[in-house]
């Protein structure tokens, strides 16, 4: 029997699907926190989520007949639900509303690792030359320069700023190597948002979000959001780019042991480049998250 999720995790909004990809009138199934869910969209286009019983993937269903509905939010192109008592709001990404951005969901990738391990990988720059060779980094330029990390009390999120890295091809629209500057936010225990210098417009930033759906403690689905300033690439190009990146991360993440994220500072060996990961681990620990992590023995 799986462990019951901690109350903090249970009361969070969790991503479950790209709203556009939910079929109208047909059942889609998924797993969230070891709980089987069924999803569909009614004729009004609004997603409906409920605890799956004997429904099968692909069954026809009339959304109007579903009564025991779970709470639902749609945000950033995705459908979110909650198994407990949800907070009013999901974390903000104000850039999403800017009219000239290309917003898109870039697919959902299953990864056999805990959601917090996947978040930590998203925060990590040191692996760029080794895992995303010749795209997000390339040897010999391997240095992770000093950057700043803070946990914002007010917004309850981890914030890493002034992160710089030498990248051969930082984005689809980049043609030459450049030092890119990143800002990372972790506004939700299983979600992170990245702002990176935009090759097309120096004054603005491309936004990439990763929303992890914790299916079990050791399995997740990564849902990707891109909100870009890019006038030339097609949506297919942009999606392919992000899928290449995540396709490269997946085999590394699936070879990580233990699969749950250890919160004991002595479980692994941090270096200065891991400042954001250290802050993230402490933040999870302080919040009392126990799902998908190995809590620090008290």
């Amino acid at each position: 029997m799986p462990n019951a999720p901690d109350p903090i995790t249970r009361n969070l909004w969790h991503v479950v699907a790209a709203t556009d990809e939910l079929p109208l009138g047909l059942v889609e199934t998924t797993l969230l926190l070891d709980t089987r869910l069924a999803l569909t969209r009614g004729n009004d286009g609004e997603p409906v989520v409920w605890l799956r019983r004997d429904e099968e993937q692909g069954d026809e269903i009339d959304a109007g007949t579903i009564h025991d509905r779970l709470p639902v939010r749609t945000a950033y192109g995705y459908t979110w639900t909650c198994l407990g008592t949800p907070a009013d709001d999901l974390f903000p990404i104000p850039e999403f509303a800017e009219p000239d951005r290309v917003n898109m969901s870039c697919g959902s990738i299953g990864i056999h690792v805990s959601a917090p391990r996947a978040v930590e990988n998203f925060l990590d720059m040191g692996h760029f030359p080794y895992v995303h060779t010749d795209i997000l980094g390339s040897e010999p330029h391997t240095e992770v320069k000093e950057y700043d990390v803070e946990v914002s009390e007010e917004r309850d999120e981890v914030l890493a700023t002034k992160c710089r890295f030498m990248q051969p091809r930082a984005a689809k629209s980049a043609t030459t190597a450049m030092e890119v500057e990143y800002v990372y936010r972790v506004p939700h225990p299983f979600c992170s948002v990245l702002y990176k210098s935009c090759p097309e417009d120096e004054s603005r930033r491309d936004v990439i979000g990763i929303f992890l759906q914790p299916m079990t403690e050791e399995r997740c689905r990564a849902h990707l959001l891109q909100s870009m300033i890019d006038s030339t690439s097609t949506i297919t190009d942009l999606r392919r780019f992000q899928q290449t990146i995540f396709g490269q991360d997946k085999p590394i993440l699936e070879n990580q042991y233990p699969k749950k994220l250890p919160l004991d500072p002595r479980a692994e060996t941090p270096i200065r480049a891991d400042k954001s990961a250290i802050a993230y681990r402490r933040w999870l620990s302080q919040k009392g998250i126990t799902y998908g992590v190995i809590p620090q023995a008290s």
């Binding site: 500072p265 002595r266 692994e268 060996t269 941090p270």
Partner: peptide, 12 residues
């Protein structure tokens, strides 16, 4: 059991 790293490795 994964042995813990030494205490001085756990800090930066």
């Amino acid at each position: 059991i994964y042995e813990k790293v030494s205490a001085d490795l756990a800090t930066m």
